[in-house]
Design a protein around this nucleic acid. Sequence first.
DNA 1: GGATCCTTCTTCTTCTTC
Length: 352
Amino acid sequence: MYLLKRVGCVGSIVVPQCTSLFVGNFSACHCLSSPKRHSPYNSVDSERYSSLVKAVMSSKISSQTPETLQVEDEHIYGPVVNAQTPASEPEVRVPKTLHPFSHCEETVETEETESGPPARILLNRGQGRSSVPSVTRILQQTLSPEQIFYLERWKRKMIAQLGEEGFKVYSQNLFRQGKLFHSAVEDILISDATSIGEKSSEKAVFQPEVLGYMESISHVLADVSAVRATESTVQHAELNYLGIVDCVARYRGVLCLIDWKTSEKPKPFLSNTFDNPIQVAAYAGALNSDGNYKYQVENGLIVVAYKDGSPAHAHQLSSELMLQYWKMWLIRLENFPEQRSSDASSSFVQKR
DNA sequence: GGATCCTTCTTCTTCTTC
């Protein structure tokens, strides 16, 4: 079953190309088909699917720009060597300033910081932080046009199904479940860091709405130890942003910045988690430069929990992956509109 | 007490044939 799904994924790469060819050469395709054989396309309600055709024509075909082809070519064949025309080189998306992800010289390990209760630094907006944007805000305001398109399309579809008010209730419910889940996880993590796995199986302490989610992550919690922080504020000392990390703990012995997520749809691959890895890298980078934390965290973990109790997907982010997502975060940070006008950005977004 | 903030989620394709 799993393999079949994977084959389906491979097919998805081929199908859009076939579709675009088909759309562009409808009559030719039709003529080539056997006249005795009834084509299923004859019965297609072309008016109904006009928006789909439009979407295919506008997004799928136009996405094959020279820039994306170049990226693909570089991925397959390696970077271009001996380029003769630097003036016409396509713009490559790299951060203008490569700020370090971790500060090795400040690393202090480890026994001392692992003892004692987890840190929980509360967000205090009153102390000169009101102008500091958050990770969530920056990510939301720097979504790609494609992301905005799919999100808006999804929202339109949901409103068509549920109505404006129904959609509002549905969204509020999603947020509420996410919040309840987070606080339940936090309760376990701070109640007794030495028996997290056992605590997670004590179903009576959970609200009914989060029972499934907690069952879903029980196998992950069994591998979590040495909790150092929960729901704690981090602020980057130089890059002018802040956020609240879900958890810093050891997962299978490796110190990780952990992000707990709830999801209605299965997310078996890291690529299903959209901007979550960038969010984790952003938090880790902030923590590593934040003087309140006397250690460095270079690995990440995204745990996607399911309401029906099916096993959560735990996506580990190695330090190498974290570095890649950190670079993507730096680009998002550069593109954040408010960043340009802030004082801190003047040194950050500088020309080389 | 009210206002504001951070976070909580949401996207990525869907159907036919043997």
